[in-house]
Amino acid sequence: MDVLTRIGLVELAFGAVLGWAVAATMITPQLVERAGVRKPRRILQAHLDYVIMGIILIAVGLAVPGLPTWLAAAIVVGTWLNPTLFLPLAWSPRAATRTWFQVLSVVSFTLTSGGLVGAAVVGLVR
């Protein structure tokens, strides 16, 4: 099994487990609030995005196995960073105004979109 597919399965599983945190936001909102979560909806966004990004990794790993390492690395970093960026927003909605957050967002989107375009090109050329 291609490494991208394996990492995608891990990300998909992580997203599935994060579903428990989503359930907690609905079943025991007071507990989540005590944990400092100010925007529980961001946890739902992260959960869904981890699942989606995991499926993307699995699909790319199966459709275009053996991608160059640098390209696979770009896709993996981008598809993990994208959903992870929702989590700081759950605790601190103002994080989106911070320079570190904005820089990481640009890096994440660049790696994901650029990496997936690169994978499409590799897949079409082969």
Rank of each mutant, 00 (worst) to 15 (best):
2 D>R: 05
2 D>L: 02
2 D>H: 08
2 D>E: 09
3 V>F: 15
5 T>L: 06
5 T>D: 07
5 T>Y: 08
5 T>W: 04
6 R>L: 10
6 R>V: 07
6 R>P: 03
6 R>Y: 09
8 G>Y: 02
8 G>S: 11
10 V>Y: 13
11 E>K: 00
11 E>M: 04
11 E>D: 13
12 L>D: 05
12 L>F: 10
12 L>A: 15
13 A>D: 09
14 F>G: 09
15 G>Q: 10
15 G>D: 09
16 A>I: 11
17 V>S: 02
17 V>T: 04
19 G>Y: 01
19 G>A: 11
20 W>T: 03
21 A>G: 13
22 V>Q: 01
24 A>R: 02
26 M>I: 02
26 M>C: 11
29 P>F: 05
29 P>H: 13
31 L>F: 13
32 V>Y: 02
33 E>P: 07
33 E>Y: 13
34 R>G: 07
34 R>E: 03
34 R>H: 10
35 A>K: 08
35 A>R: 07
37 V>Q: 05
37 V>G: 09
41 R>G: 10
42 R>T: 04
44 L>M: 14
44 L>V: 06
44 L>A: 14
45 Q>T: 01
46 A>I: 03
46 A>K: 00
46 A>E: 04
51 V>R: 07
51 V>M: 11
52 I>H: 08
52 I>Y: 11
53 M>H: 04
53 M>F: 02
54 G>T: 00
54 G>D: 00
55 I>Y: 08
55 I>E: 05
57 L>F: 03
57 L>M: 11
58 I>M: 14
58 I>R: 08
58 I>H: 07
60 V>M: 07
60 V>F: 05
60 V>L: 06
60 V>H: 04
61 G>P: 04
64 V>C: 08
66 G>V: 06
66 G>M: 09
68 P>C: 13
69 T>Q: 14
69 T>Y: 12
69 T>K: 14
73 A>N: 15
75 I>V: 11
77 V>S: 14
78 G>M: 03
80 W>C: 11
80 W>K: 06
80 W>H: 13
83 P>F: 10
83 P>W: 06
85 L>Y: 07
85 L>H: 12
87 L>G: 13
87 L>Q: 10
88 P>T: 10
92 S>I: 08
94 R>A: 15
95 A>W: 10
95 A>H: 07
96 A>Y: 13
97 T>P: 06
97 T>S: 11
98 R>N: 13
99 T>K: 14
99 T>L: 14
100 W>H: 15
102 Q>K: 15
102 Q>N: 14
104 L>G: 10
105 S>H: 12
105 S>Y: 14
105 S>L: 12
106 V>R: 10
106 V>G: 09
107 V>K: 06
110 T>D: 00
110 T>R: 00
111 L>R: 05
111 L>E: 04
111 L>T: 03
111 L>M: 11
111 L>P: 03
112 T>V: 05
114 G>M: 02
114 G>W: 00
115 G>F: 01
116 L>P: 00
118 G>Y: 08
119 A>N: 02
119 A>C: 08
121 V>I: 15
121 V>G: 12
121 V>M: 10
121 V>S: 14
121 V>K: 13
122 V>Q: 02
122 V>F: 03
122 V>K: 02
122 V>P: 00
123 G>R: 00
125 V>R: 15
